[in-house]
């Protein structure tokens, strides 16, 4: 029978805390960047001419249909060679995670915008509103309501996906875990603790998502 000894992790709490902060940092920054990319791409895909939408579609499909780990490694190793610049691991991670998130958010935005009845556009036009204003005041608020559950789910995925940055030696929660394991020889305690920390951060988010969904259902 295995004897758990979480006390062995005591000297490493600073590192674990540091790793958690890095994980949260990447989550927040790449979610924000992903939302900006996603909103822009999502709107353009529903409104722009074909020569704009076709390349955007290509971007979305490339990032949705290749593993994030491959994207990360590619941005870190291949992209610097192609464009001739040095890329820090941190920068590569930020770029890959943001573009990845952006591709999924773009599809959520597009779906939400297209789910709004065309009659809403017509009603706005019929009272003399112009395109941009109809979008901002009539369509987007309704689309956002539809999108919120998918958003929260994608954001939860994003936090979990940040664990991949450990592959290029960025010191997130998982990376610190491997470092601590190497010096403490306590992999079970270390990885259990890390799993619990991910859970503790994400579980409240899923509860919020459920609440939001419930409340939206009641409003209809």
């Amino acid at each position: 029978m295995y004897v758990w000894e979480f006390a062995a992790l005591k000297p490493y709490w600073g590192l674990i805390w540091q790793g958690l902060l890095v994980t949260l940092f990447y989550t927040v920054t790449t979610v924000v960047a992903g939302l900006v990319i996603g909103l822009t791409v999502g709107i353009l895909r529903t409104t722009a001419p074909r020569w704009v939408t076709v390349p955007l579609r290509l971007y979305i499909e490339v990032f949705r249909c290749t593993p994030l780990l491959v994207q990360l490694v590619w941005v870190y190793y291949a992209l610097p060679v192609l464009i001739g610049v040095d890329m820090s691991p941190a920068m590569a991670c930020f770029i890959a995670l943001s573009l990845y998130a952006g591709s999924f958010y773009a599809e959520i935005f597009r779906g939400g915008i297209e789910a709004v009845d065309v009659g809403q556009w017509e009603a706005g036009r019929a009272i003399g509103m112009r395109r941009g204003k109809i979008f901002r005041r009539i369509v987007l608020p309704q689309a956002t309501q539809v999108m919120i559950p998918s958003f929260i789910n994608q954001t939860i995925m994003q936090l979990k996906n940040t664990s991949l940055v450990s592959v290029v030696a960025v010191g997130d929660l998982l990376y610190q875990g491997s470092v601590i394991t190497a010096s403490s020889y306590r992999p079970l305690e270390v990885y259990t603790t890390i799993a619990v920390l991910y859970f503790v951060v994400l579980f409240p988010l899923t509860l919020i998502a459920d609440q939001v969904e419930l409340r939206m259902g009641a409003h209809r």
Binding site: D117, G119, Q120, E122, A123, A126, I138, Q142
Partner: peptide
């Protein structure tokens, strides 16, 4: 409009 199209 036939289907009202109020802003919900």
């Amino acid at each position: 409009f036939q289907h009202f199209n109020l802003f919900p």
